[in-house]
């Protein structure tokens, strides 16, 4: 019983974090057609900004939303400076990899210079612990498990039920036609990056609440988000969400039965096999489009 509860809980918790990260990556990929390698750094920066605001004396309820909004601005600026000028170039996919990696390195080292290498922690969403099914869990983790699906549902509503969200999906499906019907494609590109960055920032705040933060804290989640996105199919929002939880459970089960060392190797093995059989991802339809 306790084994099952542990895997279930671990899977839900990790899956929530992966989903928050992967959705942003998928959003940027579908709208702009590039991979944002500074996504992990967004996560780190969100956490550090939140920490700084709390340190300045703001209550967490104010500091966290402010940090998320600031991250949206950071995403917009990054898009305008290192992605937008390259749009239309033949080798954009490759060049954006290097410019976003370089921008990530800039932000990471900037954070290291400003905040130093010492580990920090931000307050949990809800303090305290409890026991469910024989497994001790913190209320912070339960809060994450509950909040994440709500945020993802809100994102889904935004993409499917609002004019702006529909415009974003239109750009993802057909950029030329979007230009023709008068959509501001440049602004929508910025919006995709802004949403992705604020989701990553929120994931960083979640993570900073239960684990020590460091300037390199984003690199491992970025890697996991990449796997999730490949696994679930790059061309949708729902695919990566399902895949995030699936991989969360897979990891929880693996580390329970095979140990922590073998989990990443097994995960990458499964990933490569998936791509050999279904290159477009297991949950993907064959067309490129959002939601």
């Amino acid at each position: 019983m306790s084994a099952l509860a542990e895997i279930l809980f671990g899977g839900l918790f990790q899956g929530s974090l992966y989903a928050m990260m992967a959705v942003g990556l998928a959003l940027v990929w579908t709208t702009i057609g590039v991979f944002n390698f500074s996504h992990g750094v967004f996560m780190m920066l969100g956490a550090y900004i939140a920490w700084q605001l709390v340190e300045l004396g703001l209550p967490a309820a104010v500091a966290f939303p402010v940090a998320v909004v600031v991250m949206a601005g950071v995403g917009w600026i990054l898009q305008a400076s290192v992605v937008r000028p390259l749009i239309g170039r033949p080798n954009i996919v490759l060049v954006v990899v290097i410019t976003t990696l370089a921008a990530g390195s800039l932000i990471e080292n900037g954070a290291l210079t400003i905040w130093g290498p010492r580990s920090k922690q931000i307050p949990a969403l809800i303090a305290g612990n409890t026991t469910i099914g024989g497994v001790g869990v913190s209320l912070h983790q339960i809060a994450i498990i509950v909040i994440t699906p709500l945020i993802l549902a809100a994102l889904w509503m935004f993409l499917n039920r609002t004019r702006l969200g529909l415009a974003l999906r239109a750009v993802a499906q057909n950029e030329d036609a979007s230009h023709l019907v008068g959509l501001n494609v440049t602004a929508l590109y910025g919006l995709a990056f802004a949403i992705a960055a604020s989701l990553a920032g929120l994931a960083g705040i979640f993570m900073g609440g239960y684990r020590f933060m460091s300037p390199v804290m984003g690199s491992d989640p970025l890697l996991k988000a990449l796997i999730v996105v490949v696994f679930g199919g790059i061309s949708s929002i729902s695919g990566p969400i399902f895949a995030a939880y699936l991989i969360g459970f897979f990891e929880a089960a693996c580390s329970y039965y095979f140990g922590l060392y073998w989990t990443p190797a097994l995960l990458f093995g499964v990933l490569i096999l998936t791509l050999m059989v279904r290159p477009e991802g297991i949950f993907a339809s064959r067309s490129r489009g959002l939601a």
Binding site: W29, F35, V93, V97, L223, L226, I227, V229, V230, I234, Y261, W262, P264, A265, F268, G269, L271, I272, L275, M276, P279
Partner: peptide
């Protein structure tokens, strides 16, 4: 059978796999 971004991801995964095997 793969193209573009998928090649990035598989080869990236391969690199991680080699590293994980060496660590384990």
């Amino acid at each position: 059978r793969l193209k573009g971004i998928y090649i990035i991801l598989v080869t990236f995964g391969f690199a991680q796999l080699v590293m994980q095997v060496i660590i384990s």
